[in-house]
Write a protein that binds this DNA or RNA. Structure first.
Length: 567
RNA sequence: UGGGAUAUAGUGUAAUGGUAACACUGUAGAUUCUGGUUCUGCCUUUGGGGGUUCGAAUCCCUCUAUCCCAGCCA
């Protein structure tokens, strides 16, 4: 294969890949081994936005034969919890990535970080400040005005050392003192106006317990953690661009001999979705959803419970690409990726969500026949399973109309359709209940059409899925839809709660499902033929009480046509 | 004149001085025992204005728009 040929069909490189290939080519990477890291703060559940970051960091390491560390950025014990650490690990594994032994915690570096801070003080590059939070804000200046030096800025090294020691020993009150870097209060970049390095917090840490009452800040901890771990490419989102000078400041501290570089990409936004931990937490706290793993949540645990496959999520992220432009990805791309993957994987099942009873008058009363149904028509090697058929079957209420509109080619009086895999039936009459709703449709079948085809090769326009009345399995089906009805939740009123979709969950208590569904278990991908993709709910599903979640609908061109025709 | 960043079809992403492209969406049709899938066609793109050049999405100047930053959060 020549070079030109090799390039055909190759994905173009994103800007991070270009940087890495350039670094590799110019021998700027120690041992030619790139090291990335995924550094979540364990203060919430991972969401789709994190999937992008995970795929970038683990993906880059994979592609270039490097490694990706998992580092829990646990420097704020008042917000963090082990519950989150566990879910984070589970989510990454679910996506199919593994950090192996490379599991780190920023808190593991507390001692080193402390020693470096002492050195900084000795070098006159950090000082203990007694400004209150309010004062500090005043001294910091504004976006357009320079800040001014704290009165404590020129405190003697001895005094600084003593006070920092007292901070560490818990002798000083929370909020009373901080350790600050001595950089430049007149910097146009606010992050460089003597950023706080340490604050006092009398909080017990999930991992270090009560050993420390001073905790290091992000701008100090993160770059040094990267340096300690030998990270080569430290990749984060755009909002940290302004912090890069602080990052470079920290990695340039005397004694730190490895200087990683920070690169920023734009975070993932999807319309009709919220992607901020704070707001997601709010939905959970207000009980507007059932929890972090509610299938309507954009969390990893939520989409997993919804039935999205890890492959589809990775494909989605890869189609979105990596760049520095901020944008909003269409929800439809997400759905496309999910459908495309599930179409290949899902076992086809017949399920009637809104049943209407069909009585085939000329079919023997007690007769039962079995027909082979293909598990997955996309797979030429697919197995089949048997479906029992009898005189009375359910079809979808939508599949019968007393007075059909134009282009409707399903069942209506006098029309012939096919019951998938079985026979052609023709509607002869129907009954209505006291509400005027059609309750039973009487049909005749053509015994010649056994198996779904006739010797005379006549065509029918419609094929319905069905479930034998006497064999139907009762199941709960949860029809999920978008959590928000507006493209930008809260965009109009400023309050995203106003844009919650009242129909984001519709529960069908008694769907009629074919018996084969009893074999479905949590983790299986199903397609309810002509209805959509479904999965077993990973919390509530059981043999006794089957619960199926709708992952995504099938594309529905008939619905589109109806809309166009104004029906 | 605070600082930092970004502008390519409706959306996302390519094209690094040589015919603006891919995917999604939308739309028209073919195929189909899922109105699914598959296949085919079509629509629509370089923020504005100058300049350099035989030639500009790409280089220069300028304007505009949008995003981020004033936590002892990350």
């Amino acid at each position: 294969m020549d070079i030109e040929e090799e390039k055909i069909g190759e994905k173009p490189l994103n800007f991070l890949e270009k940087i890495i290939e350039d670094d590799l080519k110019n021998n700027r990477v120690p041992d030619n081994k790139i090291v990335t890291r995924f550094p979540p703060e364990p203060n919430g559940y991972l969401h789709i936005g994190h999937i992008k970051s995970i795929c970038i960091n683990f993906g880059l390491a994979q592609k270039y034969g490097g490694v990706c560390h998992l580092r829990l950025d646990d420097t704020n014990p008042t917000k963090e919890d082990v519950e989150y650490i566990d879910s984070i690990k589970e989510d990454i594994h679910w996506l199919g990535f593994d950090w192996g032994k490379e599991e780190y915690y920023a808190s593991d570096y507390y001692q080193q970080l402390y020693e470096i801070a002492v050195q900084l003080i000795k070098d006159g590059k950090a000082y203990v400040d007694s400004l209150s939070p309010e004062q500090m804000r005043e001294y910091r200046g504004t976006l357009t005005e320079k800040g001014k030096n704290s009165p404590d800025r020129d405190r003697s090294i001895e005094e600084n050392l003593r006070l920092f020691q007292e901070m560490k020993e818990g002798k000083l009150k929370e909020g009373a003192y901080t350790l600050r870097a001595k950089i430049d209060m007149s910097s146009p970049n606010i992050n460089m106006r003597d950023p706080a390095l340490y604050r006092i917090k009398f909080a017990s840490h999930p991992r270090t317990g009560d050993k420390w009452c001073i905790y290091p800040m992000y701008d100090y901890t993160h770059p040094i953690s990267d340096a300690i771990e030998g990270i080569t490419h430290s990749i984060c989102t755009l909002e940290f661009e302004d912090h890069r000078p602080a990052y470079d400041w920290a990695t340039a501290i005397d004694g730190i001999d490895h200087a990683p570089h920070q690169y920023e990409f734009s975070r993932l936004n999807i319309n009709y979705m919220l992607m901020s931990k704070r707001r997601l937490l709010n939905l959970v706290n207000l009980e507007l959803v059932t929890g972090w793993d509610d299938p309507r949540m954009p969390t990893v645990s939520g989409v997993r419970r919804r039935g999205y496959s890890p492959e589809s999520m990775k494909d989605f992220v890869s189609r979105v690409g990596v760049a520095k432009t901020e944008g909003v990805v269409d929800y439809s791309l997400l759905e496309f990726c999910v459908r495309e993957d599930l179409n290949k994987k899902a076992t086809r099942i017949m399920a009637i969500l809104d049943p209407i009873k069909i009585v085939i008058d000329n079919y023997p009363e007690d007769k039962i026949e079995y027909f082979a149904a293909v598990d997955n028509p996309e797979d030429p090697q697919s197995a089949t399973h048997q479906m029992p058929f009898s005189r009375e079957v359910y079809i979808e209420r939508e599949d019968f109309m007393e007075v059909p509109p134009r282009k409707y080619h399903r069942l209506y009086p006098g029309n012939e359709i096919r019951l998938k895999y079985t026979y052609y039936i023709t509607a002869t009459s129907f009954e209505k209940d006291e509400n005027g709703q059609v309750s039973v449709v009487h049909c005749t079948y053509d015994p010649e059409s056994f198996g779904g085809d006739t010797p005379d090769k006549r065509k029918v326009r419609g094929t319905s899925h069905w479930v034998s009345v006497k064999h139907a399995v009762d199941a709960e089906v949860r029809l999920y839809d978008k959590l928000f009805i507006s493209e930008y939740p809260g965009g109009e009123t400023g309050n995203y709660i106003d844009d919650l979709n009242p129909e984001s969950l519709i529960v069908v208590n008694h769907a009629m499902v074919e018996p084969y569904s009893s074999e479905a278990k949590v983790g299986d991908y199903l397609q309810f033929i002509r209805n959509g993709y479904f999965c077993c709910d990973n919390k509530d599903h059981s043999d006794k009480h089957p619960v199926f979640n709708r992952t995504v609908t099938l594309k529905d061109s008939w619905a589109k046509m109806k809309k166009k025709m104004g029906i």
